[in-house]
Write a protein that binds this DNA or RNA. Structure first.
Ligand SMILES: NC(=O)c1ccc[n+]([C@@H]2O[C@H](COP(=O)([O-])OP(=O)(O)OC[C@H]3O[C@@H](n4cnc5c(N)ncnc54)[C@H](O)[C@@H]3O)[C@@H](O)[C@H]2O)c1
Ligand SMILES: NC(=O)c1ccc[n+]([C@@H]2O[C@H](COP(=O)([O-])OP(=O)(O)OC[C@H]3O[C@@H](n4cnc5c(N)ncnc54)[C@H](O)[C@@H]3O)[C@@H](O)[C@H]2O)c1
Lengths: 209, 209
DNA sequence: TAATCATTGCTCAATGTTTCACAAAAGATT
DNA sequence: AATCTTTTGTGAAACATTGAGCAATGATTA
């Protein structure tokens, strides 16, 4: 429990900064200024410095930041200095795409189990992992120390599945269904609502001209 | 070209209100108060009224809103009283999932074309539509009146593909690649960054306790 | 027709976020 | 050792969003 409330926008930008720094490391760059980061990710340099200032002083005045040092701090701040295990519920089109995506593992996220209600899906393989029945939820969460639940079932099943995940001990939910979910205050919920994203585009296309 | 700047958060909520109202219509509900909407989607009633107030007066004091009337206004505000045509670039795991998703058509979005660079993908079918080579981009955008480009190629190809989309006349981009894209000021860009979403979860899991 | 009721729409206050601008600090130069 | 240059870190100002409270007002009831 920390003193400060960190704006969510700040956290999202930290994630993007960290990815940019990773690129710089790959490119062999040793040092970087807030202004270069700002240009690289499309924000202002003051914003970069303010975001970092929530967590400490990581740079050297007149010089900038050591890329690897700052990257290390950001990964630690983001909780990416460890591995997290997630469970995917719903092995449909979207759930499968997520399960097979390599990019998550590269950032410290493992998929520990994939569950589905349909006999058509149960027993099929997605990469290394076999789709299992819903009944395995509690056991898999327990034994694999799963903290994150990813919900990719139809909207009609989303709340029910979410309740079960929370009951089974999951602490955070990433919801892809177009449904407003109710979760207790101690569970972290994020919604990735693709329709909303498209509709923001159509609003802007419509409104701005 | 309107007087006001509408907060993006407001637009996203309007999309969610409209979906909730759609449910109410299905359930045969005729009238609704800001307080009921607020409970239904998890915001405050003041927020609901404030969001609507940007666009006019849609309710009756002492009574509430007529569900169908308000729904109609929201759909119009969101630009969903017409159809939009989109093109998907990258027929991989994510692009395929999006292409096959029925929910977009239900809200007025058609997928007019799906392109890929790989010979393995070109010629395969995703539902009704055949995956075509990148060279078809300009022609398809022109002839199908496509305004929205959906980018689901690897990060390394994302900027290049985006440049081509804009050159071919697309006015809005929905980017799923983990890359900060540069677009001209008259093009609308939204990023759906799934890794960032997971990392916000890990930050909160890590930080809040 | 007047009184009552419920709920909107709006004003103003509070809170939160971004930008500005500059003093402070560290390395480079003379 | 003094001066110059650069870029951080930050307090204050500007801007944006959310929340609280209530006057206005249409519908309902008496
Ligand atoms: N595919 C997309 O591009 C896309 C876009 C936007 C939103 N979404 C949302 O994501 C979710 C998944 O979409 P999809 O396209 O993968 O759908 P899908 O139909 O391909 O997959 C859904 C899967 O969930 C399983 N399922 C159904 N009820 C279940 C239950 N109670 N418990 C466990 N599994 C259950 C089904 O067997 C199926 O395998 C939906 O809510 C959808 O609205 C998807
Ligand atoms: N799948 C996921 O769950 C997921 C999650 C987060 C982010 N993403 C991002 O979404 C994007 C797509 O992911 P995916 O899992 O579908 O990858 P994928 O490898 O399955 O698909 C990528 C497709 O793009 C095609 N492609 C490559 N270069 C191209 C080019 N220049 N022009 C046209 N097509 C080209 C490839 O042939 C392939 O079919 C990536 O940027 C990825 O980082 C995906």
């Amino acid at each position: 429990m920390k003193a400060y409330k960190i704006p969510e926008a700040t956290v999202m930008r930290l994630s993007i900064y960290s990815r940019y720094l990773h690129q710089l490391i790959d490119d062999g760059v040793k040092s970087v200024s807030s202004d270069e980061i700002a240009h690289g990710v499309g924000v202002s340099s003051a914003q970069v410095r303010k975001d970092l200032a929530y967590f400490g002083e990581f740079g050297t005045r007149g010089v900038g930041y050591k890329v690897e040092v700052l990257y290390g701090h950001l990964m630690k701040i983001l909780g990416l200095d460890r591995r997290w295990c997630a469970i995917i519920i719903g092995a449909g089109k979207l759930g499968s795409a997520l399960a097979l995506y390599q990019g998550f593992a590269a950032r410290g996220f493992n998929v520990g189990a994939i569950l589905d209600a349909s006999p058509d899906k149960i027993g099929t393989k997605l990469g290394e992992i076999e789709v299992e029945p819903l009944e395995m939820m509690a056991q898999r969460i327990e034994e694999k120390n799963i903290t994150i639940g990813i919900v990719t079932v139809p909207a009609s099943a989303a709340q029910e599945v979410t309740d079960k995940l929370i009951e089974s001990g999951v602490k955070a939910i990433l919801n892809f269904s177009p449904r407003v979910l109710k979760v207790p205050g101690n569970v972290i919920l994020r919604n990735v609502d693709l329709s909303v994203n498209l509709e923001v585009l159509s609003f802007n296309l419509n409104y701005l001209k």
